[in-house]
Computed example of a mutant assay.
Amino acid sequence: MGAVRDPEATRARIFDAAVAEFARHGIAGARIDRIAAEAKANKQLIYAYFGNKAELFTHVLEKKMLDLAAAVPVLPDAMDAWIDRLLDYHAAHPELLRLLFWEGLEYGTRELPDEAERQDHYARKVATLRDGQERGIISDAIPARDLLFLLVAMANWAAVVPQMKRILVGGEDTDADRLRASIKEAARRLVAT
């Protein structure tokens, strides 16, 4: 009796292998044959399920960003908790920031393949912050879109450049705790009314 085919399990294996491959090597350096080998799938299935390499990358990044949005919604009423959850999420899922960094290297300021969807994704987060500003629970001194960018940058930068974090902040657990407290204090000051 032959092996039972499970298309969803195969898609999941391909997706997981693609996440690892793109996080490790970026868009240009990733290889479909390595993804296929890791996923125990043939290359034709990858193309059939996800399209070409650039389309696969776009799909991978979109799904990882949706996972983050679902796991860590913006909380204007609880900014400390949001920053903590964002820091914890990226510590547990470092591949997302790596994927975004590779995307930045590949595309720079050029339009992304899923630009409209990405704008919608961020517009919802900005609207949440703007709502907090309109309700007077966070400062409107900085426009909501800039505020989101600044808060995310503060929370994410140490994970993007761990070597810089180690050199400037230190590499001990106490240093990481101190940095987290500093990020949260800076966030509190940015949003304070």
Rank of each mutant, 00 (worst) to 15 (best):
A70M: 09
M79V: 15
R98G: 15
A127G: 09
E103T: 07
G170A: 07
A81P: 00
H121V: 03
P113A: 05
M79R: 01
H93N: 15
L75P: 03
M164V: 15
V161M: 12
V169P: 01
Q163T: 13
R124A: 15
L148E: 06
S139D: 09
E95Y: 02
Y122T: 04
T109A: 13
L148S: 00
R85H: 12
S139F: 00
E111H: 06
H93Y: 11
A181L: 10
H90G: 02
R178Q: 11
L99F: 07
M154T: 03
H90Y: 13
S139R: 05
I142Q: 03
A153M: 13
I137P: 02
L112Y: 12
Y122E: 08
V169M: 13
M79N: 01
E185M: 08
L151M: 13
P94R: 07
G108C: 08
S182Q: 14
L148C: 06
L86C: 11
L151K: 04
D131N: 09
G170M: 05
P73F: 05
E103Q: 15
L150W: 09
L179A: 09
P76N: 10
A181T: 13
I142H: 00
G170H: 10
V74L: 03
L168P: 01
A181H: 10
L148R: 05
L87V: 14
L97D: 01
R180A: 14
P143M: 05
M154F: 13
L100G: 11
L100Q: 12
A81F: 03
V152F: 02
T109S: 12
R166K: 13
V126G: 06
A70T: 13
W102Q: 06
V161S: 12
L100C: 11
E111I: 11
R118P: 02
R145Q: 11
W82Q: 05
R85V: 01
D131I: 00
V126P: 04
A159I: 01
Q163L: 12
S182M: 12
L97T: 01
A92M: 03
L75S: 14
P113D: 04
R118Q: 11
S139Q: 08
H121Q: 11
L87F: 02
A116Q: 14
G136Q: 10
A78F: 04
V72F: 06
Y89Q: 02
I167P: 01
P76V: 02
Y107G: 04
A71E: 14
Y122K: 04
A153S: 15
L100E: 10
D140C: 05
R180T: 14
A155T: 07
P76A: 05
Q163F: 08
I138C: 06
M154S: 11
